[in-house]
Structure formats: C-alpha cells, structure tokens
Nucleic acid binder design. Structure first.
Length: 599
RNA sequence: GGGCGCGUAGCUUAGCCCGGAUAGAGCACCGGGUUCCUAACCCGGGGGUCGAGGGUUCGAAUCCCUCCGCGCCCGCCA
C-alpha cells in the first residue's frame, strides 16, 4: 500500500510540489503539537494514493506516540491545523490518518503541462552522474535462443531502458564467450568435411536442414550431438582440447571467429524482432589478446589469499568470503597455466568498473555461485567494487524441469515468434478484413512481440515461470496488446478530432468527472514509477503501471464522450487524451513494445 | 548435507526493499452492455487461514526464527 516518496523535481514530476507542501506544513504542525519528526522520516511515512479519502495519506501512529496521545485523537487535532491551499483542497482526519486531497485544478494543470510539454521526455529525467552498464543475455553462441534465455534478454533490455530514462547514460553489453569448450566444439565439427563427421552427429543433422534457414539454426544444429559424442570419445576430446589451447594462445583457427559471428548474427536477428539490440559486444578473447588477463593473473598470484596447489594450479582460499563450505577454494588458473572463466570475468569487470559507475549483470539463478566467487576474486585483486546482480529464475516446462535442447523440451524463440504472429494475424483479420496485407503483417508482428515481451516482464524476475503457450500468447487483460490497443484507441480519437499534433489547450476545471480525475492521477504517477523501477530494478512495476493507465483510460473512454462533447469541454478532454497517449506511448517505449497508431 | 530463491483466489500474479485504513489485478466462471469516439473493450457478481507455526510491534502478506513443499547451484566447465 505504501508508495515510496522520493525527492523529484518540479520540472519533471507533477507531484513534487504537492509532496513538498505536505511535508512542509506537516512539519510545522507536528512541531507545534509536540510530535516532531524529521523531514526524512515524514517522507518515509507518507503514502501516495493512500486511501479513499485522499491522494496523500499520513499515518499518525508514530507522531502520536511521540506526543503521547492516541492516534485518532492526535489525527483529529492535527488535521485542522493545516488549512487548505491552492494545492491542498482539503485536509481531513479519518481514524488514525490525516488525508490530504490534492487540489484537482492544480494537479491537472501541472500533470497535463508536463506530459504534453515534455512529450517523449515525460517520465524521463536529465542525465546526471557517470554512465552505467547493463550486461545481459550473453548466451553462448552455439545455436538458437530458447525462451529461457529470452527471459534474460527481455529483463535486461527493459532494465537498460528504464535506468536510462531515470537519468543514467547506459551502455548495454553482450559478453560473447568465444573461448572454452562450447564455442570450440562448433569450430571443431565444422572444420571437418561433412563426410568425416562421426555417424551420430551426421544422423542428428541429416534431414533436419531447411534451405535458407538462419545461420544459428544451421550452424548450431550439430552442437548437442557433438557435445555428447566428444564426452564419450577421448581422441575427439584431445582434438578439442588442442583447439581450446590454440584459441587461448591467440591463434584460433580462422573459421572460429567466422562461425561464432555467423551464429551470433542469427541469434541477434531474432532478438531484433523483439527490439532488443546491444550497444557493444565484448569478446572474451579480447581480454587475452590485450594482455589484461595476464595482468590480472599477476595480481592474483600476489593476492592476500592466493595459494598454489601441489600440481601447480592457482586458487584463492575464499573461506572468509561467506561461500558455501565446499566452494571455499576457488581455482582461477589451471595446472597447465590456462585461465578459467571466472578469472577472465575479473578482467572483464575491471574494464567495466573503469568506465561505468552503476554496473548491472543480469544472470540466471544457476550463475549465482559464479557471481559470489567473482565477488571474492574482485576483492582479492583489490577493488572494493562489485556489480549489481539481477538474478532471475529459470523458465521451466509443464512436464517439470528446465528447458533442455537434448531432451527436446526446449521452446525456441523463433518457434514462439512464428506461433505468436500466426495467432495475432488471425486476430487482426477477424477485425480488419479490409486492411492491406502489409499492414496486417506489421500489426501482427507488433502484437505478437508485444505480447511476448509483456508476458515475460510483468512477472518479478525471482519468480519461477512455467512456460504455457496459452499464457505466453494472451492478447487480453494484463497483456501487451491490451496496452497497445488502448494506445491505438487514444491515437484514433486524436486523429478523428483533427488534433494529431497539438497544440492542446485545456482548462483544468473542465476535467472534473471522476473518471477524468482518476486518469489524471495515474498520468501524474508515471515519473515516480519510472524512478522507482530504475532504483529497485523492479521493472515489472512499469508493466503494471502501463496496464493501470490503459485500464483507467478504457473506463474513461466508456464513461465520458470526447468528440461528441460540448465545445468547452471537448478541447480539454482532447488534451487529456493526448497526455494519456503520450504517457502510454512512453511506457510502451520503456517496455520495448511497439506503439500502434491503429490496430 | 550446505547455499540461494520461490510459496498470495481454481489458474497466473501485484504488493514485500521502506510494517499502516477493506490484500490489488488478469484468466477462467456467472449475469449484463455495441442504431454512439476501435467490443483486443466496459459494467456487475461469486471466489483469499497471503504454505504452517512461533516471535517482535499499537499494528505483520511485508521484519526475525523454526518447520514443510518446490526449483537451482555446490567442476582445474562456461
């Protein structure tokens, strides 16, 4: 129920002057009554949208205790000491609470002025401070995405958008693991003529290939069979090991980079359909090439808890780092002198810290222990910094268990996209049979991808998710298409009003219907919602907000005529609709869901 | 066994960081709404021991402890 009240700016947040005034006048009144509380404590106690009686509520329990009075009695004495003003329509006591009803005229005027005046910047704050980095997805380039990985991409991309909006210059990074066993297996198999492939690998590929298929599907197809085969065959294992050493020594087969890039390109093409793109790709091998792994190794050898094992391997005695008992010895360099993943990750993170203040890593829960060992190693090299980990739970299948390529239980992103577009197309055709085919396709694609993104981002990352087609492809209720539809409705209204581009003159006193005021209050909440989501990384609150706004807009739409209303109200209602369209559109942008002017 | 996460209506979930008024939604179900701005919509209804127990508190879904159930991790893999 409590909604955090953070300091904002009058230039970006319509609620700021109201909250400031409540805090000021409450402080004065409390001091006079003998229950003084600091401004910080007060700000923590206030509730936005507190209850049925007012938009800002103050529970008096603590102040009453300080004044040694019963809360209801205290509230009854406190409320009359604060007189209404141009910003506060009324101040009233109810039970233990003092409720502040905001003056609708002032609230509406400020909210519409900011939403319309700032346009695409409404809900955004000016860039301040040093830049930040969000690393997400970073899937091994070994084949197509399944939707488990897509949870990482959607959460990560949304976090980047939201943190950026809240005033941090964010760079998104995809860490490409082109080293180690997984990518090497791909290069190993494709280095051989098809005729020399082991029989089980050929069997896994033959007949499955489709002309013109994406490179991630084509080049990645042998991977599961190769992985299984090599595990069982020491001679193949030795060949792969030799290849890994060649890669680490800086002399990978020429085909290696080419294959990795081709597969990655195919994977990224699918993400691009979800409007997920990356500012930078960081190749793991770069840290070997530029010597930073070597430098980290030197520092690690002299680290406070570095130990040399009998066979020459190096480890950290991490007993003091709170790791599970069995993991207190963290090996970072093999006996043969090659580095381990976590060590290269140290080099990567030192590079991040040099450029960025806020560093967020989006990781599956299976990487949690890795994250904690990384923290331990970062401390050992002498930095006090650690990334902020955003850990999400796996997506499982109804039969139980994680998605796995081998068991055939995986649901592929491309498959999900195809199915979603099919279904969206049917929905479009059912309503708009007159539409040119290109428009039908464009809308179907937007609805399909909007449904998928919303479905993933609306749930808190730490919740386990069981994949069900009917949930993922929902176009109603709490869904992306519901928000898109509401946006299209607002856009349609403005088109028909001949008011597509503004200006939008309005008289706040003409917007006095309960549905109008409720709508204004939700629009006014947007900047605080974004700020909270960026600070807490709870991006699901932006999804919830978009639904709340769309929901209230639809209620307004049914209850209040716009185009058919009398002239003096019409202009103001059009301005309100324009503010809603803008805010809804900005929220969709943050969620990476396409705005549709018509559906 | 240890570490971490999750458990809220038949199903999916918000709220938990930072305790506060009657725990919000969506799906499904039941009953209504389209000569009228897009029915992917709206209105009404039923449905909750917030996993269990204990503690702290004026007050607990929220904080602490114990237990139960489920998931993941515990490699000189990444």
């Amino acid at each position: 129920m409590a909604s955090p009240i953070e300091p904002g700016s009058e230039e970006t947040d319509p609620l700021t002057p109201f909250v400031d005034e409540v805090l000021d006048r409450l402080s004065t009144a409390l001091a006079a009554l003998g229950g003084p509380l600091s401004r910080e404590v007060l700000a923590g106690q206030l509730e936005l949208e507190g209850g049925p009686e007012g938009e800002i509520a103050f529970p008096t329990h603590r102040a009453a205790a300080a004044a040694k009075k019963a809360p209801p009695e205290f509230a009854a004495q406190l409320a009359p000491r604060i007189s209404p003003s141009s910003r506060l329509r009324s101040v009233s006591a109810k039970g233990a609470y003092v409720n502040f009803a905001l003056a609708p005229s002032e609230l509406t005027a400020r909210t519409l002025a900011l939403a319309l005046g700032r346009g695409g910047r409404y809900g955004h704050r000016p860039v301040v401070g040093r830049p930040g980095c969000v690393e997400h997805t970073s899937a091994n380039p070994t084949g197509p995405f399944h939707i488990g990985r897509v949870r990482n991409a959607i959460i990560g991309d949304t976090v980047a958008r939201v943190v950026r909006a809240a005033g941090t210059a964010v760079t998104t990074q995809y860490y490409v693991d082109d080293m180690g066993r997984q990518a090497s297996l791909i290069t190993w198999i494709w280095s051989k003529p098809r005729a020399d492939w082991p029989a089980p690998v050929r069997a896994a590929v033959d007949g499955a290939e489709v002309p013109g298929e994406k490179p991630d599907a084509y080049r990645g197809r042998p991977y599961p069979a190769v992985s299984a085969y090599v595990k069982e065959h020491p001679d193949a294992q030795a060949e792969v090991a030799a290849m890994i050493r060649a890669i680490e020594s800086g002399a990978p087969p020429p085909l290696h980079r080419e294959l990795t890039e081709a597969i990655l390109g195919g994977m990224l093409a699918s993400l691009a359909r979800l409007d997920i793109r990356f500012d930078e790709f960081v190749w793991e091998s770069d840290f070997l090439r530029d010597g930073s792994v070597e430098r980290v190794l030197e520092r690690m050898h002299g680290a406070p808890h570095a130990v040399r094992e009998a066979n020459g391997a190096w480890a950290i005695d991490a007993a003091g780092y709170g790791l599970p008992k069995e993991s207190t010895r963290v090996v970072f360099q093999r006996a043969d002198g090659t580095s381990l993943y976590v060590l290269r990750d140290v080099a990567y993170h030192l590079a991040k810290f040099a450029r960025f203040d806020r560093v967020v890593d989006v990781l599956g829960q299976d990487h949690l222990l890795h994250a904690r060992t990384l923290n331990a190693l970062l401390a050992e090299v002498g930095t006090s910094r650690t990334p902020t980990y955003l850990i999400y739970q796996d997506i499982t299948v109804p039969e139980g268990g994680r998605m796995s390529t081998r068991s055939g239980s995986a649901v592929w992103l491309d498959q999900l996209l195809a199915e979603a577009v099919d279904r969206a197309r049917r929905e479009v055709l059912a309503r708009r049979e007159d539409l040119p085919e290109a428009d039908t396709e464009r809308i179907a694609e937007a609805v399909a991808t909007g449904a998928i993104r919303y479905h993933i981002v609306r749930v808190a990352p730490e919740k386990p998710v069981v994949f069900r087609w009917e949930d993922a492809l929902s176009f109603e209720g709490r869904s992306g298409p519901f928000v898109q539809y509401s946006y299209a409705r607002a856009a349609s209204l403005l088109r028909k009003a001949g008011a597509d581009g503004g200006p939008y003159p309005f008289d706040p006193d003409r917007l006095s219907d309960v549905e109008e005021l409720a709508l204004v209050r939700i629009v006014a909440r947007f900047p605080r919602t974004v700020e909270y989501a960026a600070r807490s990384l709870h991006v699901q609150s932006v999804a919830a907000y978009a639904h709340d706004l769309a929901d209230q807009f639809n209620r307004f739409y049914h209850a209040v005529p716009v185009l058919r209303s009398a002239d003096d109200e019409r202009a103001s209602r059009i301005a309100l609709v324009a503010a809603v369209r803008q805010t809804l559109g900005n929220a969709l942008d943050l969620l990476g869901i396409a705005r549709l002017e018509t559906m």
